[in-house]
Design a protein around this nucleic acid. Sequence first.
DNA 1: AAAAAACTATACCGATGTGTACATATCAAA
DNA 2: TTTGATATGTACACATCGGTATAGTTTTTT
Lengths: 187, 187
Amino acid sequence: MSTLRDKILHVASDLFQTRGINSTGVDTIVAVAGTTKMTLYKYFHSKEELILEVLQKGHQDFETWLSDKLNQNTKQPAEKLQKLFDFIEEWITAPDFRGMAFIKAAAEFPNEENAVHRLSSEQSRQFKQYLAGLASEAGIKDTESLALQLSLLIEGAMQAEQMKRGSGAIKYAKKASKILIESAIKG
Amino acid sequence: MSTLRDKILHVASDLFQTRGINSTGVDTIVAVAGTTKMTLYKYFHSKEELILEVLQKGHQDFETWLSDKLNQNTKQPAEKLQKLFDFIEEWITAPDFRGMAFIKAAAEFPNEENAVHRLSSEQSRQFKQYLAGLASEAGIKDTESLALQLSLLIEGAMQAEQMKRGSGAIKYAKKASKILIESAIKG
DNA sequence: AAAAAACTATACCGATGTGTACATATCAAA
DNA sequence: TTTGATATGTACACATCGGTATAGTTTTTT
């Protein structure tokens, strides 16, 4: 159980978010983490492997946080869809929010063959499926359609907020989601 | 009127889109463009300046293309909003589409003080204003709200399509836009 | 034809990129 | 206390980064 490994992961995640992945060298990571490259390369065989683990941990943390929030604060399945954007807003407006990791990673690695790009794409797909699950539990027929629309709003809002802090995009996304959910329930 | 300057701009734009900005060195750019670094630095004082010009040209091309399409194919102002997503779809599904430049640039340069990030942010704002203009001409009251919602859908769809070609996200965005526009007209 | 301008070729600068070789320090098991 | 594995520090290899210096070649203008 190495705490140094976790430290490296945490520092890398932080630097990737604030400076970008390609702009952050391993020298910087080990310097901030207070260790050496030897140790980093003992735990991670390459920088790419480190990137992949950072992405995986970040996405897992997000989904865990979100589903915990939803399970703790709602009772009926339909309620989850309604409150979804409240928690997304809470996540986005947190002071340390610097954009959704998998969105930015896909932009930094545009090649679809690239492992980092593929993982990002997969995480985006997983998130859509999670939304589809919520829609399905809420008794909505065309779950895929609503899930994709909500994901567009959410990822768009995250993108907008990362581009300009305090943009308030999530407020409008929330309003739009209400309209779309209502429409999906009827149709 | 130097054609070599345009060639460099074009090649850089292409490489930035396919490989990413930070992953594309000036050596690669001049090699593909069939010239030398001396010439590149005659026209552009730094790589950052080249990036900024590539972004500006790309955004200008997009807005020109879109407004031309709208002006040629529609008559009444209200019609423009309806057909907007048809042209966005045409743009996104073009075989050489590799994502919206200013979205990806903002991800590669996360620091809000950075010049590239600021330009990207400004272009996103401009696009929103353009949408607000369309909404206003169509006689919609809360133009800002609709414009932001549509921009979320569009930028979200562009992001989704860049992440996974053939995702079809734009189809669902189009359906969502119809619902939101209708709702905005009523309210 | 002469001169000015545009372009190319090559070699280099210092800084930084990822990744390693090798030697030392630490510490548990024997 | 000796052994042996693990963690660490230093130093470096090699490539590439953005950017420049110098010199030679082609093209355009006068």
